[in-house]
Every structure is written in C-alpha cells, then in structure tokens.
Nucleic acid binder design. Sequence first.
RNA 1: GGAGAGAUGGCAGAGUGGUCGAAUGCGGUGGUCUUGAAAACCAUUGUACCGCGAGGUACCGGGGGUUCGAAUCCCUCUCUCUCCGCCA
Length: 423
Amino acid sequence: MLTLKYIQDNKDQVIERLKIKRFDAVQIVDEIINLDNQRKSTQVEVEALQAEMNSLSKEIGQLFKSGQMEEANKAKARTGELKEQIKELDTKLSETTTKLNEQLVQIPNVPNEIVPEGKGEEDNVEVKSGGEMPKLENAVPHWDLIKKYDIIDFELGTKITGAGFPIYKGKGARLQRALINFFLDEADKAGYGEVIPPLLVNEDSGFGTGQLPDKEGQMYHATADNLYLIPTAEVPVTNIFRDVILKASELPVKHCAYSACFRREAGSWGAHVRGLNRLHQFDKVEIVQVAHPSESYKILDQMVEHVQSLVEKLNLPWRLLRLCGGDISFTAALTYDFEVYSAAQERWLEVSSVSNFENYQANRLKLRFKEDGEKKAQLAHTLNGSALALPRIMAALLENNQCEEGIRIPEVLIPYTGFDIIK
RNA sequence: GGAGAGAUGGCAGAGUGGUCGAAUGCGGUGGUCUUGAAAACCAUUGUACCGCGAGGUACCGGGGGUUCGAAUCCCUCUCUCUCCGCCA
C-alpha cells in the first residue's frame, strides 16, 4: 500500500496519476486524510490520559508503600473516571485505525510516469522485439501435437483432478523438467540465489504481497488450516523479507525459485484458453529482487534483459510490451510483459511479467533497510518477474519447432532433455 | 493424535505485581591505547506513533481479562521443544 506520508505530501499527484490506472481516488484520498487527522487527535487525547494515569498509579504505589492508606484510597477513587475515558477513546482510536487501513489498502500503487494511458491489452506499447517468425504451412496447434506425440494428457488430468490440471508424460515430462532446470541454471548464472519455497502460505503472506484482500477469489484456499495455495512463487519468496530490516550494503538481494503455481482463474475461461494457454496448475521459475529505491528501475531493466536472454536462447520470436494503465496490476508501478509468438495459433502468448512495485509491497511487508550510520530505516523496493512461466513456452516451442520428422528441441535444452527431437 | 514444558531486545539469558523498555554476557558501532592489528578499557547500541522541542505513548509470541498499576496473575489462540503414538 501507499504510505500515508506519500499520500499527504503528494495528494494531487496521487489523484492525477491514478487516473491512468482508471482509478478515481478523489474521495478515498480525502477520507484517508480525514481519518488520519482523526486518528492523530484521538491518539493525542488518549496518550495524555494515559500519561496522567501512569503518574497517578505511581503515586498510589508510593502512598501504599509509605503506609498512607487513606491518601492512597482517595487517589484510587480518581482513577475510575480516567479509566472509563481511556477505554472509550481507545476503542475509538482502534476503530479509526482499522478504517484507515481498510481504505489505504484499497488504493492501487501509483503508476510510473512512463506507464502509457489505455483501457486494456490492446493499448499496451511494444518496446522492442526480436527473433525470427517461423515459416510454417498448415502448422498444427499444440493441443493436437501433444496428442499426436502423447506427451501431455489433459483428459487424464481431468479425471484425476479437473480441467486445467494436465499430466505431462514421457518426453513431455522430460522437456518440462529440462525447461525448469535450464531456467534455474540461467538465473543462477545471473546471480539469483535459489530457494525452494512452501507452496502454501498463510494469510499474512497473502496480505504482504497484495493478493489479499484484493484477489482472494483467485487463490485456492485450504480452509481447514486457513492456508492459500500460491498463485506464484513471488508470494512466499517476497515474504521471506516480511518484517525485515536489511543493511543498505546487502542490497540488492536476488532470489530465484521454481514452484508450481495454482490459480482458480474464476470466470476467465472462454476463447483462447485451449490447451496450455490457461491452466489451474502450472510451473514457473520466478526471479525476485529487493532493491535500494535509487536503483530499482535500473534493476528492472536488468531483469527484463535476463528474461530477454531466455527467450532468445530458446529461439522464440518475442516482443516486449510496456503495460498500459488499464492492464497493469493493482500493486505494480511499472510492468513489462514478454510475449512469444505461437505459430499455429498465430497469436502472441504472454510468458513473463516483470514489475517494479517500488515500496508498495514493502510498506505492507514492513521490509526496510538502513543506510550505513543512519538511525532511521526506510522502505526498500521490491521487484519480480517470471523467468519463465512454462506452459505457453512449451506451447510455442511445440508449435514453432514442428517439422516433418517431429518436434525439434532447441539447442540449449538438449543437454537437459537428452534428446533432440520428439517423434 | 495424547501428555508435559516453554515463547523476553541481533543472539544467549535474568526478571513472578510498582523503582522494568527491561540485569548480565556475547555480538554491532564509535573512541582510547598501538606502526597496524589483537587484547584491554570507555562510550554507545530495539521498533513505531505524537510533538518544533523538552518530552510523551505503545510494544516482553498474538488477542482478551483481573488490578489504581501486568513481562510478571487469569482465559484463549498460534508457534517451538521433550516424551509417546502414527508416518514419507
């Protein structure tokens, strides 16, 4: 969430910039400022009373000690009213604080200046692109290829779990594992320390990265234990740093993680979601960084370059989009999407989303750092990106590399798969 | 799953109703000494909010209660450890 101070100091700017995210902040910002003023004045009142109570209690203690019972009891009588008042104001204070936080959490992150205006996908701006478009005639879509070569079985997954939980088989499973290992190795080379995080997280973690309370319905919820299945490794990995104060010299912290990801995708089924295009469970390698605020945009570029190197090594035609205000997520300040071209579907598929959250997540996480010699901790910046999400990469690889003999495996993956063609 | 013990500052570990935001040790930081370092010695060392400041308030796992007053007593939740059971 945004910090109160930022909202107070930049009220007009916040309202103006959030228009790009198509969020009308006029009313809520006023309400927040009002609530905070109310909170402050109530707090001042309570604390004055508490101070009085504290000193009175000390007096009483002294009186008892020196045996002045009568005086002591007289003083005790005075505390009753104070107690009442404190209790009343205390309730008011916590109510105000709760309301304030409820409002604060509802304001999206302020987009960076370079976020383009726009309503949705169609207004995203292409920044750059690369790779060669495959020249194929009568390209077969991946959902037919996987049947032909028996490498992924959707029906079997449906039987065992439900739609959107495919079973990878034989060379399909092997290719999946090859991609995971390739992505992890590349991340390792780029200096990202690997972690294997839990796949279920508690409520605090869901809140820390912004999935809760906003996107509650998007996550699978294990209600018996009140745990959520992670929609992305971003959640557990970023939450490593919840309530942490780092040294400035430790920044940036770089992590990567492979995990299965679980998404309910409620209400989002329809056209364009055949085959591997949209799943309830999928694999992804995620990269996460905690950065110094002065460096976070430089680091965002580095992360984009890292992802670019991956799609290039896989020989996939790619393009990089800067998300417009209408398409960028609630918590991000700036997001780049990578898309790869899928030859048979003749469309671009999103395979990575790389974002700078500035201090929006850090403020929820209480993730701070201290400058050398400084006493005051300040909020760090968090960033993350997919590097990469597997299913659509798989889809594009299968479709783009199909030929008479079978499906050719990209050079870089052969050491991982142990075969160079699926036939 | 059953029984018991526990949760205190970066760490270890005192503190069982007031003088406790909290002893002591270690660690960290600054300094003295030294050619430099180590050792020793001295000082300093939690977070947040309010206030221009002096200062005030809150926090001893979370929440609630008793009391004029709670780290300390009571209830409850979570977590950790030990033993038993089950188990990859």
